[in-house]
Design a protein around this nucleic acid. Sequence first.
DNA 1: TTGTATGCGTTATCAA
DNA 2: TTGATAACGCATACAA
Lengths: 332, 332
Amino acid sequence: MTIYDIAKKCNVSIATVSRVLNGSDRVSEKTRAKVLAAIKEQDYAPNPFARGLGLDSMKMVGVLCSDVADAFYAKAVSLIEHALQKHNFDVMLSCTGESNGKDIKALRYLMQKHVDAVIIIGTPFAVQGNAAALKKIAEQIPLVAINNNYKLPGTYSIICDEQAGMRNAVYALSNTGCRSILYLYDALTYSGRHKLNGYKQGVLELGLDTQPALTQKTPRTFEAVAAMIHRLLKQKVPFDAILASEDILAVAAQRIARRNNHGVPVIGCNNSIIAECATPTLTSLDNRLDRLCETAIKTIIQLMQSEAPALPSKTVFDANLIERESFQTHKQ
Amino acid sequence: MTIYDIAKKCNVSIATVSRVLNGSDRVSEKTRAKVLAAIKEQDYAPNPFARGLGLDSMKMVGVLCSDVADAFYAKAVSLIEHALQKHNFDVMLSCTGESNGKDIKALRYLMQKHVDAVIIIGTPFAVQGNAAALKKIAEQIPLVAINNNYKLPGTYSIICDEQAGMRNAVYALSNTGCRSILYLYDALTYSGRHKLNGYKQGVLELGLDTQPALTQKTPRTFEAVAAMIHRLLKQKVPFDAILASEDILAVAAQRIARRNNHGVPVIGCNNSIIAECATPTLTSLDNRLDRLCETAIKTIIQLMQSEAPALPSKTVFDANLIERESFQTHKQ
DNA sequence: TTGTATGCGTTATCAA
DNA sequence: TTGATAACGCATACAA
């Protein structure tokens, strides 16, 4: 079934069919009705490739992240897909894996597929060394980053101020009387660096314990976290609170600490479903993923309109500390 | 940059460029090298729409589920995307939401986009009433279902025998001395029905307590589960074990029960990250998502080859009970 | 081994 | 208000 078939059935030209297909008003009501009827009857839909070839667009946006299996990215992709659907855009999902060597290739690949825009969630590849490539891409299609700041002309970054959020978390812990806050993280991505900085800033401002052993890098597995906590306890590193860059690290550390009779206030980050599954339920820094995604879509859509307004190259939302049992129990 | 530009630069015809592009061996080494050099120098990549128009394929497979934010679907999508990437297929993600009214429309939409194949994860829409449409689609492109059984000619279903798995879980609980197993579920999807059947089967076979109050439907929220458990305890419904169709329900129920001094063995299902986050860690029925996805991809790929071999319309994997603390503590 | 010519199904321009 | 026709960029059958 092609536009020719419909045209033939209606005794009109393909131009006319195309016009009703695209909602032109330069068609008489009578012909429109006739064509519409035929389209419906034949269950006809225009060939997207031919359409794409002519318009250089298939109304598709590329969504890039390191791994959708991660709860944070999954939530982001879900929000994005849902929002884009409303605007009649499809999403082409591309996961880079933990940036081994695929790197920016995935983005380049997306470009070759002529997507209409790209949303990059998190830090799927290093920006430095790829700045030129990114800039060139941004000149061709809208490029928006969630939880990363590319600082490149033509790129739009939607971020949560996790640094301030983590600093506030340190203050909150300090208010419960803690002096030695153990900080756990797994990777120094853009987000990871800022969280760590927030922790350091808070600790410094409040004159808390700054010994290096209180800042620990660990893989995101229960075993690794358990081994690390055991080691710290054995070495008598005197932590009286735990702050982590990821809920999962916080949950793991909380359990091990408590099982060793070392119950302390704990705060995680991402406010994922995991936080609610822990016992005690985990206080967590909400990085407003919903707002970030909502803004990203709004930005993308506006940029894709012919007369795009000037948009902020950087949009920042505040993080929000969601207090749950892991924290409240220890409040005075 | 088009194939014409490359041809001109190399003083050859577009046919020759096309040939080296598609790895034909009917090109002299000298020309091939020349063309390849030009392609690289110009960073040229064929226009996917033009290619798609000619071949009626953009090497893209549609992946359909109700919501990627769900840990189970997220994991599945991740596995699928990863595997498809290796075969140079892209994934177009489409989420239906909790089948309100969008229904099978998403699948139809995918077809209009001329995807090369479709993978349906779980139960994004009702099969009954859509059998004809599904059959027609399956005649056109490979259609494989994960954790659903369409029983339609041309469709391929990859399933985990969760019914037997749940039955075994009941046996395992019974072995710890339980007689009244509380069963929690949230929806009677294909998977949901079979899990429930497995529970019923086990209970029946073992002559365990069958009172209706032991089978509870509840939304997937902590509040709802808490309210339900409280109600059961108040009504003195005498459950001495909990089995749930989803890890999240199990985790929620386990916590409330324990807080009311009603610690019982608990088993969830999906063996998601959530199971490890609970305290005590949750015993869970692993439905072998990795195997399911691996098989789905293998099937899809084979079906898309010109000479597709005969493949089983239904492939079944056994579920696997992963024992953790929520169960072992109660073992004799 | 290489080139020519046609088809793929649209959209859009121009003329009627 | 309509129709004829030229792009769009590639693959491929056929000719050389």
